[in-house]
């Protein structure tokens, strides 16, 4: 395997994959070998007089029975892993709530921690409950070999036991629109102690302190939010156009927008950025699709201030 498995179920799935693809490759080799052998051996030059054979019941029954046995065998081995994934969630599993929305992931822990990457302890069963705020997404961590669609209006779950420390890719696999391929996150698997240290640490910077923060700190926070809140999927900071306008040089500029069907010019200032975050459809910059998801409930007022300070620095 190219990408080694890093969960207990993943290692089991790999053995089944090896078994079933081994059978398939062997069948393919036999079919193609016999075909080519016949094509060469019974070419018109070598065998000018064909023999009509209408059938051979014992042979036909034989290969039908053999095929039935083979497919039932493969069906069984595929089923075993699925049964574990679907029906055997351990009662002591560590529970994390994942929320998907166009086009980012966020994770909530039972003690109130909130992250954009999935932090996990090694060697402990984890149950991830899956919720979507808008359309169907797909929760997929290839190294764990698990995947589950995230369906709005119906909470789904998936469970697994990571058994190797490391940082692994987390993808959205159900097509969800413009930013689908940018809807990435990471699963960070840590040792038990390291995880505890993070998990029981100070929850968040106290909100009152935020107002007193220096501009430099806010810029740094804005930079971090740009990456973790998913802004990066649609907005560049180097002037390149993506789904949305680049942030480079946008502060203080005048842009043409469509507001309720009318085109008008607005100044990019604090108020405009605030409105763009909470009600992005109110003013849509001309030449861009109206696809930005509203950030109400996702970004706090302080976070918008931090992002605004960051945008100011992008000259």
């Amino acid at each position: 395997m190219f990408l080694s498995a890093s969960s207990i179920i993943g290692k089991e799935i790999d053995s089944v994959l090896l078994l079933i693809s081994g059978i398939c490759i062997a069948l393919f080799a036999v079919i193609i070998f016999i075909t080519l052998y016949f094509v060469i051996k019974y070419s018109r030059e070598r065998n000018p007089n064909p023999t009509d054979i209408e059938g051979n019941p014992p042979l036909e029954i034989g290969w039908t029975v053999l095929s039935i046995v083979l497919v039932l065998f493969m069906f069984y081995w595929g089923w075993t892993g699925y049964r574990k994934i679907k029906t055997e969630v351990p009662k002591d599993a560590f529970v994390v709530k994942a929320t998907a929305q166009q086009w980012l992931w966020s994770f909530d822990y039972e003690n109130g921690k909130h992250t954009n990457v999935l932090n996990l302890p090694v060697n402990r069963p984890v149950k991830v409950t899956l919720n979507s705020r808008d359309v169907i997404h797909g929760f997929y961590i290839p190294t764990f070999r698990i995947k589950q669609d995230v369906v709005p209006g119906a909470e789904k779950y998936i469970w697994f036991t990571p058994d190797e420390e490391g940082t692994y890719d987390l993808f959205c696999t159900q097509y969800c629109g413009l930013g689908h391929s940018g809807m990435l996150s990471k699963a960070v698997v840590m040792s038990g102690e390291k995880f505890q240290e993070w998990y029981s640490g100070r929850t968040e910077v106290p909100k009152v302190a935020l107002a007193a923060k220096s501009i430099e700190v806010m810029v740094e926070e804005g930079k971090e939010l740009y990456r973790t809140k998913g802004c990066i999927a649609c907005h560049t900071i180097d002037g390149t156009k993506l789904v949305g306008p680049s942030w480079k040089g946008i502060w203080g500029s005048r842009v043409q927008v469509i507001s309720a069907g009318e085109q008008r010019e607005v100044l990019v200032d604090e108020e405009y950025i605030h409105r763009s975050e909470f009600e992005p459809q109110a003013d849509v910059v001309v030449g861009y699709p109206p696809v930005m998801p509203p950030q109400k409930g996702l970004l706090t007022e302080e976070e918008i201030k931090a992002i605004t300070e960051y945008i100011k620095t992008l000259k």
């Binding site: 994959l17 393919f28 493969m74 069906f75 595929g78």
Partner: peptide
């Protein structure tokens, strides 16, 4: 044949969880 046999891989439940989409 390649298409059909790879379909068996996708038809196996636990492998589908890995390879779907």
């Amino acid at each position: 044949s390649i298409g059909g046999l790879s379909g068996l891989i996708l038809g196996a439940l636990s492998l589908n969880v890995f390879l779907h989409d």
